[in-house]
Simulated scan of single mutants.
Amino acid sequence: MPLQQTRVDVFEDIFLVFLGLGTLVGVVVISYVLYNAYKYRDDGEAKDDESLPTLGELPTGGKGGKKLFLSFGISAVIVISLVIWTYGMLLYVEDPQDEFDEEPVEIEVTGESFAWHFEYANGVEASSTMRIPADKPVAIQTTSGDVWHTFGIPDLRVKADAIPGEYDETWFMADEAGAEHEIKCFELCGESHTAMVGNVQVMEEEAFNEWLNGQLTLDVEIVDQNEEPVTEGYEMTLEHTQNDQYEEDLVHTYTAEDFDENGTISLDHEDLQQGGEYNVTITFEDDQYETVEETIEIDGPSSETFTVGSADEADNGNGTNESDDGGDGE
């Protein structure tokens, strides 16, 4: 079946089918009971029927056996059909990967210290608020950083265990942009269990992509020990610490000409492409300043200021390299 239903739709369909069949069976059974109660009521008149057993005589049968066989047969067909149909629907809920018409949004969910943390496939991280696009499948992997938790979104019929060292996979889809859904923990995990909540913010796909790309930004400033901008004669290289694990080459090199006159440069998702740890190396052509080597984390809008010391001072043991991180992973 094509992926057109959300988890909510599937469970509502199952509920409505069982409700409808249960109601139909109930009406038929009660009607048949009432019909027979009326037909065979005791009206005080003796029935002239040779097939009626006398006192102490066992009944020899009649047409009732056919009715019993027919009723059992119909019941078996209904029950077996319901079991097969329901099982197929639940398989669809549990693992619809082959049914996705498009690549799902992948999010890793971690429960820890009475809060929920989210990491998107491009390395962007957020806490408390999970942002997702409307009408697009979202595949999540849940785990825990401390004790057992259970991630749940009641409105969207989502529930997944969050266990240390393990990953529980599930999916969901929200179809109403602008809606918000509460996240809860369904595992008694400690004294602040009831406060372990969050929310899902459903966005238009274009707005979601704009937000997600906007999280991968980095502002870099290079200054000397007098906090004056350094504007010429250097090269900066950014290399992802896990570069060999990605198809694209996450090594970026910028020269002083790429920086503005204030010794700053602003990089966006087209430059970075993937969040995570980057090794930063700044080298100087004339050896006026000592080489800078730092490791920075980019999981949201970030800013870094590198304060460079002169090579002469470094030789005397007085050189300093400083990095100030103003990153925000939310």
Rank of each mutant, 00 (worst) to 15 (best):
E285G: 04
T170I: 01
M203V: 05
G233C: 11
W116E: 04
V10A: 00
V202N: 01
T60E: 14
D287M: 01
M173I: 08
E293W: 00
G73P: 08
E313W: 10
S266G: 14
G56L: 08
H181D: 03
G327E: 13
L21Y: 13
T143S: 14
P104V: 11
S323G: 00
E125V: 12
E12W: 03
E293T: 10
S302M: 04
W116C: 14
T291P: 02
S75I: 06
K136C: 12
Q274I: 11
L238D: 05
G61T: 10
L91A: 08
A139G: 08
D48G: 02
G64N: 10
D299F: 05
P2V: 09
D175P: 09
T295L: 02
N226D: 15
G73N: 01
F151W: 05
L55A: 15
D244K: 11
V124F: 10
L55N: 00
F186P: 09
F208L: 12
Q97C: 09
K63L: 08
E204R: 01
D135C: 08
D299C: 09
H181P: 09
F151T: 07
L82P: 04
T307V: 15
E108F: 07
F186C: 05
D249Q: 07
F100R: 06
K159R: 12
E176T: 12
S302E: 08
K136I: 09
L216D: 14
D43W: 02
V158D: 13
F69I: 08
A46M: 14
E176V: 13
S31L: 13
N213W: 09
E210T: 15
V10S: 02
V158I: 15
L3Y: 13
D249I: 06
M89F: 01
G111W: 11
D42E: 07
V197N: 12
M89T: 07
E176G: 06
E166W: 00
G65K: 07
P301G: 05
G300S: 02
G61Y: 01
Y120F: 12
E50C: 06
T194D: 05
V33P: 05
R157C: 01
T231Q: 03
E99N: 12
A311Y: 09
I107S: 15
G22M: 01
E187Q: 11
Q274L: 01
L19Y: 01
I163P: 02
Y35H: 07
Y87D: 11
E119K: 13
G65D: 08
V223F: 05
S127P: 04
G317E: 07
T264D: 05
